[in-house]
């Protein structure tokens, strides 16, 4: 009986969710269980190539994602992707394989029968607000987050299918259902510098500094993300930014799935907070949430 409500999808976690974005992976799986979603990890998936793939070799970029799409279409279920970069690479490859000259050049017979969705869109559109509301056991009224979507969940819209690429609302909507007091700001989709953090950390720190400053100015007491690289940059660069500027903007940076787990009172949440580089536990205690 209960199984009839189960939504079954294929799941492409991507490389980060296994290491630097571990708490994103763990909270995604926990929340999926709470919402009766069965995430079937794509068998033997490979890296999408991310920025380095499309920057250095266009054909390789498409081929890497083509293999994943081929596996996903064989599995026959919609593909849910939590990482913004993976999502955008898969969508880009899909478009090329269906419409571009790649259709002939890479004859894997991909037909586009499955939908590729970013996790936040999937939870909002496919699982739906009603189901999410039902699962909330402890609302989060003390939280004043700004939602940070970053670049690749929305851009470019003709690839991602984003309806409002300059002002996306899916995470805002989810957080509101969780009882958080979501703040408005103008930096929802501004870039954090992404993988430039390894070669040019100075660029990333300048961008992240601006984001954190504007989050505080908007009255936020935390930032919520849906991308492992955004979270890593905003979370991990705060020490260095504080050292350089002399200020101490210690804003907790959460994954939206972590806050869903918190509102659902999922027993696994404890393991997630300790992985953050800017420790959110004191903040959550102050708000009476843990």
């Amino acid at each position: 009986m209960k199984n009839s409500k189960l939504i079954k999808v294929s799941y492409y976690p991507g490389c980060s969710l296994d290491s630097s974005g571990r708490e994103y992976g763990e909270s995604t799986e926990a929340v999926a269980r709470d919402l009766e979603v069965e995430l079937g990890e794509l068998p033997d998936w490979n890296c999408c190539g991310a920025t380095s793939g499309h920057a250095t070799n266009e054909r390789l970029d498409v081929l890497l994602s083509a293999r994943n799409l081929w596996i996903a279409e064989k599995a026959g279920r919609d593909l849910v992707v939590p990482c913004a970069a993976c999502f955008q690479r898969l969508k880009t490859a899909e478009k090329k394989l269906l419409e571009g000259p790649e259709k002939e050049e890479i004859p894997i017979g991909y037909q586009g029968k499955i939908r590729i969705k970013h996790l936040a869109d999937f939870l909002w559109e496919d699982v739906g607000p009603k189901k999410i509301r039902e699962k909330v056991r402890k609302p989060l009224p003390g939280l004043k987050p700004v939602c940070y979507y970053g670049c690749l969940t929305v851009r470019p819209p003709r690839v991602t299918g984003a309806r409002d690429p300059e002002d996306p609302k899916v995470m805002d909507n989810i957080l509101k259902i969780l009882g958080a007091q979501v703040m408005n700001w103008s930096y929802k989709t501004d870039c954090c510098g992404g993988s430039l953090v390894l070669a040019r950390p100075d660029i990333v720190r300048r961008l992240v500094g601006k984001l954190l400053e504007n989050a505080e100015e908007a009255g936020a007491n935390c930032v919520v993300t849906a991308c492992p690289l955004c979270q890593a940059n905003l979370d991990g660069q705060q020490d260095e930014i504080a050292r350089e500027s002399g200020k101490k903007p210690k804003l907790p940076i959460f994954y939206f799935t972590e806050l869903m787990g918190l509102a659902f009172q999922n027993p696994d949440t404890k393991g997630w907070w300790k992985r953050h580089l800017t420790d959110p536990r004191k903040f959550l205690k102050e708000k009476g949430l843990i």
Binding site: N46, C47, A50, N57, L60, S195, A199
Partner: peptide, 16 residues
Amino acid sequence: AFHRVFMMTIRFLGRL
């Protein structure tokens, strides 16, 4: 150099 090292990792392991 970052792009090269990244892709080298993918070439050997298939994942980062």
